[in-house]
């Protein structure tokens, strides 16, 4: 008996579920994280307060709790009609955005202050200075930690299996319940699937790192 060949369709669906969940949550986390990082360095005090509150709240809340808030809290607040997949994307994306924000902010702190001063001195606005000068240089330093965060995100998607989302974790649960397969073999194949995903992410980030490397 071979777990993989017997249940290939289920594995494929689970694998694609995890990939999809990771990709969309990553997209949300990167966009939100960059935005919140911009808030945290902005000259407007209200935005800075909001950014700090966002990071403090989301970084310090257990992810499972966020899933509960997303799946039980949001519908109670009137946000109905979202399926469990998109709620999982919300929870994972918002959670990871807090960490991405801090990685980007640490990148921003490595850009010499003279770069921003020079941009301001030729009349660039805050958003131009950030978008044209500071962020492109900050990204170079932020890429390696963001890569780690994306790998952590890929593995965190397993929590979604507890909330009715089809991904690798739910495949494992279904197969475990299905007596007859060696549990270690199931784990091994699930592990292989995760390794494929995380290796792909590290490969992608190594590529980005090389691409963005510019002599200072």
């Amino acid at each position: 008996m071979n777990v993989l060949s017997d249940n290939f369709a289920m594995f494929r669906e689970g694998f694609l579920g995890t990939v999809e969940l990771t990709a969309l949550s990553a997209l949300l986390a990167l966009v939100l994280g960059t935005l919140i990082a911009a808030f945290r360095v902005s000259p407007v005090p209200a935005l800075r307060v909001f950014g700090t509150a966002w990071v403090t709240l989301l970084r310090n809340t257990p992810l499972v709790l966020l899933f509960l808030v997303a799946t039980l809290g949001l519908p109670a607040l009137g946000l109905k009609g979202w399926d469990s997949f998109w709620l999982a994307v919300m929870a994972l994306g918002c959670y990871t955005s807090a960490f991405v924000c801090e990685a980007i902010r640490s990148g921003i702190n490595t850009v010499p202050v003279g770069q921003a001063e020079a941009a301001r001195s030729i009349g660039m606005t805050f958003s131009q200075t950030l978008g044209q000068i500071v962020l492109p240089q900050a990204t170079r330093t932020a890429i390696p930690p963001i890569g780690s965060l994306m790998i952590a995100l890929a593995k965190n998607t397993a929590i979604a299996s507890g909330f009715n989302v089809t991904e690798l974790g739910s495949v494992q649960k279904t197969l475990n319940a299905d007596a007859g397969y060696d549990i270690y073999v199931i784990f091994a194949w699930i592990a292989v699937c995760y390794i494929i995903i995380t290796f792909a992410i590290s490969g992608l980030f190594r590529l980005l790192e090389n691409r963005l490397a510019v002599a200072r």
């Binding site: 020079a118 030729i122 009349g123 660039m124 606005t125 000068i133 492109p136």
Partner: peptide, 29 residues
């Protein structure tokens, strides 16, 4: 920002945009 565009500034440490070419440094503004 508008007013600063009318006031050129040259710094002790040059502060050229490190990720832009020389030409881009001069065209960006």
């Amino acid at each position: 920002a508008r007013l600063r565009a009318d006031v050129g500034m040259v710094f002790q440490s040059f502060n050229l945009f490190a990720h832009k070419t020389v030409l881009e440094n001069v065209t960006l503004g």
